[in-house]
Design a protein around this nucleic acid. Structure first.
Ligand code: MN
Ligand code: MN
Ligand code: ZN
Ligand code: ZN
Lengths: 155, 155
DNA sequence: TTTATTATTTAGAATCATTCTTAACTGGTA
DNA sequence: TACCAGTTAAGAATGATTCTAAATAATAAA
């Protein structure tokens, strides 16, 4: 069976880049922390465990490359750092985020939900949409009273 | 008639802050450039024309204060700088943006458009929405072929 | 008014994330 | 072997933002 890494390797090769050991280590960290939203520094610290000789600049360069190839998305939640988020395989658009103002948790919404809105924007504003960023700020299910009923699993 | 500045002054007072000359100069610049998306540095350079003695740190402090009071919104389009955007008076939510990948133009959408999506999110993810950030990346009407038909005026 | 208190400002230093520069190293190729 | 393009590590440089300290202005108490 072809692994996720194999497919990423192919994507790199298709753009005539190599999956060097440093790049592979970086990708592995991202795969191992798919749920998280790691900063470059976070990635650096984690990747050093499995590839101690790696430099921070290499991590930055690798993340930049992966962003270019749309394997990861670079996001900014307003604290001073960029965060890197593995894109769902085959996803055309970037997924959405729920940022809790209370506890700081960042949850993900994998469903698109924006089809209708995008249709309106494309038509009314005559804007050809390539991608989007959507973040909701509010109070997560863990932090407000109306019962800790965890949301259903994403579609 | 009560001006926009007067109302902002009241908002400051309501939170027991004063509209100092430096703050007033900064607000004036923001009002004079409502269409734009100025960085702190941009604001600083402009405000220096009408209040030459002002310091960059004061501009940062003022923008931070205005952000706290939700008079302006701080946004980040992925270049390394934060930009400050005057919030529409009385708007509950922040407006949306269209960023052109071709020419870099940033257009605004003042309409909400997200009512339905937010209803779904509140219910399905049990998340109490306070605000949002929505940005579309793509090709603006000026940059693509299908005729330079400017979008209709915002609602 | 005088004095004490507090809020605000300025200038510049400090910090922190990110990018750049340079020299070294790699694997492939003639 | 000698050469070349791609990649890397280390550290310097940059640029945005925040912090610090001292000065100033506004406010409140005496
Ligand atoms: Mn995510
Ligand atoms: Mn705007
Ligand atoms: Zn929470
Ligand atoms: Zn354009």
């Amino acid at each position: 069976m072809e692994t996720r890494i194999d497919r990423i390797k192919k994507q790199l090769h298709a753009a005539s880049y190599k999956l060097t050991p440093q790049r592979e280590a970086t990708v592995r960290i991202l795969l191992d922390h798919e749920e998280d939203h790691l900063s470059a520094e976070d990635v650096y610290l984690l990747v050093k465990d499995i590839a101690p000789e790696i430099g921070l600049a290499t991590v930055y360069r690798t993340l930049e490359l992966l962003t270019e190839l749309k394997i990861v998305d670079k996001i900014n939640f307003g604290d001073g750092v960029s965060r890197y988020d593995l894109r769902q395989e085959g996803a055309a658009h970037f997924h959405h985020h729920l940022v809790c103002l209370e506890c700081g948790a960042v949850d993900e919404i994998q469903e698109d939900l924006l089809e209708d809105v995008e249709a309106v924007v494309e038509k009314r504003w005559n804007f050809q949409i390539k991608d989007h960023r959507l973040t909701f700020h509010g109070i997560c299910w863990r932090c407000h009273d109306s019962g800790p009923n965890k949301p259903e699993k994403d579609a």
